[in-house]
Amino acid sequence: MERAVVEEAAKKSALVWVRGPEGPARALWHVWHAGAVCLVGDGPDEQPFAGLGLADGARATVTARSKDKGGRLVSFTTLVREPAPGSEEWAETVAELKGKRLNAPDAERIAERWARECRVLRLTPAGGTEPLPDGSLAAAPLPTPATTRDRAPGSLPKLLLRGRRAR
């Protein structure tokens, strides 16, 4: 029954939280294919895996979320596998990932770029599900060079409301 819950949750959610042996969990887009969470990253224009410690043979924890509410559905332990570029397993995984990759700058040659510059990973469930936590798992945001603006100008609400009244 646990296997069915894991598979259904991973299929329905386009985003999973992955916590590797190192660092905090990170949200990553994925595809569920042939019994595994399939990921592509660590290259230009792709999601970063740095700091997670996702090496071939390592263990990682994957948390699938609800597609409509965004809440945690299930967490499960996985075994990380990195198929060799050009292998049959790699080609099958990339074929599935290509169909879900949005806004790729080079959609027609994406498999060549992934083979040359990126890592393709398969996270296969290896064990049961983890119990849901009792409390909040909120964590401080990761450091980033992005900043927010200062307070909004006092006249901004008037400007925004004036545009609505004119309609």
Rank of each mutant, 00 (worst) to 15 (best):
K67P: 10
V120I: 10
W90E: 03
R119G: 11
R116W: 05
P24E: 15
T144Q: 03
V120K: 01
S136L: 14
P141Q: 00
A34C: 04
A58L: 01
R116V: 10
E8S: 15
P143A: 08
C118K: 07
S136V: 13
V6D: 09
A10M: 13
S155C: 09
A104Q: 00
T148E: 04
P125G: 12
T147F: 04
A140V: 11
A34V: 06
E117W: 09
V40H: 02
K158D: 08
G86K: 03
L160W: 00
P105Q: 04
P48V: 06
D45Q: 13
R151K: 09
D134R: 15
T77C: 11
K67M: 11
A58Q: 02
D106N: 09
G53Y: 02
E88H: 09
A152N: 00
P131W: 12
P125E: 13
R167P: 05
T148M: 07
L73G: 10
P44E: 07
R26D: 07
G71Y: 15
A126N: 15
L39M: 04
W17H: 13
W29S: 14
R119L: 13
K158V: 06
H30R: 09
E7S: 14
A27P: 11
A104K: 02
L73Q: 14
L161N: 00
D45H: 13
D56I: 05
R113W: 10
N103V: 04
L52T: 01
R122M: 11
P48R: 08
P157G: 03
G20L: 06
V6W: 06
L156Y: 02
T144P: 00
V16C: 11
W90K: 04
